[in-house]
Every structure is written in C-alpha cells, then in structure tokens.
Amino acid sequence: MRAIITVVGRDMVGILAKVAGECAKVNANVIEVNQSVLQDMFAMIMLIDISALSCKLGDFGETMDAVGSEMGLKIHVMHEDLFNSMHRV
C-alpha cells in the first residue's frame, strides 16, 4: 500500500528534511520524491510505502497537516488508490 504526500508553499530551509523525518517516525518508507521550486514557491510530491506504517494513515495525515500549518505550508497525505482510480482506466 502506498500514499502520496504533497507539499506546497514558500520555499525555506529544511522542508524535505522535516517531511522525511516525520515519515521515518511512523515507519513510512520514502520511495520517490519529485520536487520543484518556481521563483520562491516550493512544490513537492512524495510517494511513500505505508505497508508497515506504525499508526493509522488518517492519524499520520493529521500530524502532517499540523506540521504544514506550523511551517506555513499546505501538506496533504492521501492514499494512492484515489489517484489511480481517477486517472487510470
């Protein structure tokens, strides 16, 4: 099972480190990272493996939402199935 984390907001030092750190805390393995910085806007999409997640995905989503608010970023954690069903026939 996999999930997708999206991070959007103003670029600053330590975004990737912070998000990856939170993933490690709940035993989520980062599979792929795709990030871009356009002027000072930061956008990152991270694919993580949640098969061995140590908490519920919903709880992790709430933690990340709070982390995002602290850093002034928008962070969403969503199950990969949603994207697969919407964009693949």
């Binding site: 997708i4 999206t6 599979i31 792929e32 795709n34 956008a43 999409i45 694919l47 928008k74 969403h76 969503m78 990969e80 949603l82 994207f83 697969n84 919407m86 964009h87």
Partner: peptide, 16 residues
C-alpha cells in the same frame, strides 16, 4: 510514479 499533473489536478479539485 503517477503523473505530477494528475496529482495536482486531484488536489486542486478537492481543495479549491
């Protein structure tokens, strides 16, 4: 991996 455009499209649909 899924297409970045598709992922952002879904997020925009839900958020905005």
């Amino acid at each position: 991996m899924l297409n970045t455009k598709d992922i952002l499209e879904t997020i925009t649909m839900i958020q905005e």
